[in-house]
């Protein structure tokens, strides 16, 4: 493994087995990860995108030594997550977030102090570090309040504070802004960016496309346990057909019209969605030959036709990739 790599995953498979019922129920076998391959460089923010149930949390837990792989090799900071977990754990930060994972009846400082001791932070340094991380996540004012009095956003900040308390070399953030109000989410993203400046490698899972677009130079898309894309944002856009998207809206389209649109030069694919009585077609366009005007001319007889062009967003790319995998 190269020294520049923070994460190296080779042919990772993770199978969960469960049983319906308590004793002799039917056995269920779920393959959550199906041969995942992934390389992540050091000192960057890597984004892992995927819909619910894609395997993001499973992969994060394996990378952070909380779950064993069924088969495959997983190395973090050059060390095997199974054989060298005890070496890795002090160097890894994990933020699973959510309402759970904190001792609600005691205050934030005491929560942090407990974990500081479990991570072996020297007593002389401990209180200073707690003050430092509380300041960093803007919770100094609430440090002595019981966690049960915290809002969702404050709890999320406290999760992050705990994750960085021991100054990890790599931080795993599992959907860090889910459920946060826009202001808290923006502050969290700002915090994540500041951590990278300090040299921490960030592995971030999210299903907010704009978040990945804003934070991550490189992203991978995980769908149904497989990495279906791993590229830069620009690279991903190119991968699914260029930078242009033309959206056409009307009260329904005929099959003949869809075929005409699909046959336009440079159109890589056309998807449709209904909303109320209207239907929206999204054309991914690879070249400049096809323009919104041309599209409008191909669809006469739609008095309230709306055609507009916009830049392909990462969300478009993501949805295309997930849809491709589903099909």
């Amino acid at each position: 493994m190269s020294d520049d790599l923070a994460i190296e995953v080779r042919n990772l498979v993770r199978v969960f087995e469960s049983r319906k019922g308590f004793f002799f129920g039917e056995k269920n076998r779920t393959e959550a990860l199906k041969g995942v391959e992934l390389l992540v460089g050091r000192g960057t923010i890597f984004g892992l995108l995927g819909p619910n149930g894609a395997g993001k949390t499973t992969l994060t837990k394996i990378l952070s030594t909380l779950l064993l792989p069924t088969t495959g090799t997983v190395r973090v900071l050059g060390h095997d997550v199974v054989e060298e977990a005890s070496w890795l754990r002090p160097r890894i930060g994990l933020v699973l977030g959510g309402e759970r994972g904190l001792y609600n009846r005691i205050n934030a400082r005491e929560n942090l102090r407990y974990f500081a001791d479990l991570y072996g932070i020297p007593p002389v340094e401990r209180d200073r570090r707690i003050t430092e991380v509380l300041e960093r996540v803007d919770l100094t004012w609430a440090g002595d309040r019981r966690v049960e009095e915290y809002s969702r956003g404050m709890k999320q900040k406290l999760h992050i504070a705990r994750g960085i308390l021991h100054r990890p070399e790599i931080l795993f953030l599992d959907e860090p802004t889910i459920g946060l109000d826009p202001k808290s989410a923006r502050e969290t993203r700002k915090l994540v960016r500041s951590l990278v400046v300090d040299g921490v490698t960030i592995f971030l899972t999210t299903h907010y496309m704009f978040e990945a677009e804003e934070l991550c130079p490189q992203v991978a898309v995980l769908s149904k346990g497989r990495i279906v894309a791993n590229d830069t944002i620009g690279g991903l856009r190119q991968r699914v057909g260029g930078d242009r998207t033309i959206e056409v809206e009307a009260y329904g389209f005929e099959d003949r019209e869809l075929s005409l649109l699909r046959g336009l030069p440079g159109v890589s694919h056309v998807t449709g969605e209904e909303f109320g009585p209207r239907m929206r077609l999204t054309l991914r366009v690879r070249t400049w030959e096809t323009t919104p005007e041309q599209v409008g001319l191909l669809l006469p007889g739609h008095p309230e036709l709306s055609v507009r062009e916009r830049r392909t967003s990462l969300e478009d790319v993501y949805l295309d990739l997930v849809e491709e995998e589903a099909n």
Partner: peptide, 10 residues
């Protein structure tokens, strides 16, 4: 939900 971070600690 504190068992996971506790087990994950060194």
């Amino acid at each position: 939900g504190t068992l996971e971070p506790t087990i994950q600690a060194p």
